[in-house]
């Protein structure tokens, strides 16, 4: 039994890699009903009328892309599907170029026009100061934007017509793998009453449930599961979205089974070793 506790960690790594690789090749299909918190995000975007503004904050860098990119892509498809005007922002220095690129790609794919249907507001280093400024003036926080490669004043862009501060934004979706969501809750929601939904990596999602329970966050996408749920709902309603998170879910399921097996083995080994030690005494 002692052997169970002394399995070389490299064997564990290899086992995980093999199982995930098999999952990617075999692609088992495991149907999952959408979670209630993901359904709330979908409903919140559905409640936005055509021509109203949705703010999508992609506050994450490369390390969180695997989990959050599918959510952001689904949110863009959903917002454009609703005919809403999309304002995009990123308070992650490394993530800003990635966010701008994804917005442009989805806009192009859906035939949307930069500056008319959507705009990338840019990046600011101090998220708190920027959100406070955005409360009264979005153009104050982001004076200039790039539209089709040309720098123009934010106020002059068609998509900003009638949008001055956060009060003119119908809904904000905050995608993050860091504590940035706290700033959106503390300042955008609490001070300016902005309706807020979040998408979070598994690493930080637990901290967001109290805000969901208190209603400060309207809906929540929980890591890959939330992304897959949202992706499925958007695809069903509007189509045209390549499965990304959904394709990872079945592989994740296999990985989790392996983890449970490892935990069980380790506990059996621990229990048996302790019993042997007690008997020896």
């Amino acid at each position: 039994m002692q052997k169970l506790l002394n399995i070389d960690r490299r064997v564990v790594f290899l086992g995980v890699a093999l199982v995930l690789f098999l999952g990617l090749v075999l692609r088992p299909v495991i149907p999952l009903p959408p979670s209630s918190e993901a359904r709330k995000v979908f409903d919140a975007v559905e409640a936005v009328d055509a021509d109203q503004a949705i703010l999508i904050a992609m506050d994450y860098g490369i390390s969180s892309r695997a989990e959050l990119d599918p959510m952001s892509r689904a949110a863009l498809h959903h917002a454009f599907g609703r005919g809403a005007r999309v304002l995009c922002v990123s308070f992650d220095s490394g993530g800003a170029p990635l966010a701008e690129s994804m917005l442009g790609a989805v806009g192009l794919e859906l035939g949307k026009v930069d500056g008319v249907d959507y705009v990338f507001l840019g990046y600011q280093p101090d998220i708190t100061a920027a959100i406070m400024e955005m409360g009264s003036s979005i153009a104050g926080a982001f004076p200039d934007v790039d539209v089709d490669g040309e720098t123009v004043p934010t106020d002059s862009v068609a998509v900003m017509d009638g949008v001055t501060g956060l009060a003119d934004v119908a809904l904000a979706l905050e995608m993050t793998g860091s504590k940035h969501y706290q700033k959106w809750v503390d300042f955008a929601n609490a001070q300016f009453g902005l309706k807020l939904c979040t998408g979070a990596t598994g690493a930080i999602v637990t901290g967001q449930y109290p805000y969901l329970a208190s209603g400060q966050i309207t809906g929540l996408l929980r890591s890959t599961r939330g992304a897959a749920d949202y992706e499925t709902m958007v695809t069903k309603a509007y189509g045209g979205l390549e499965p990304d998170a959904s394709s990872k879910m079945s592989v994740l399921f296999l990985g989790h089974l392996l983890m449970l097996a490892f935990i069980a083995l380790a506990n059996i080994g621990h229990w048996a070793t302790r019993r042997d030690a007690q008997e020896a005494e």
């Binding site: 995930l20 637990t206 990872k248 994740l252 989790h256």
Partner: peptide
């Protein structure tokens, strides 16, 4: 938190494996 982190880490690994393979 630990359970959610497992999802997170596995997703990143799956993303890397999808990239490599």
């Amino acid at each position: 938190v630990y359970g959610n982190m497992v999802i997170s880490r596995f997703t990143i690994l799956i993303g890397r494996l999808q990239f490599l393979f």
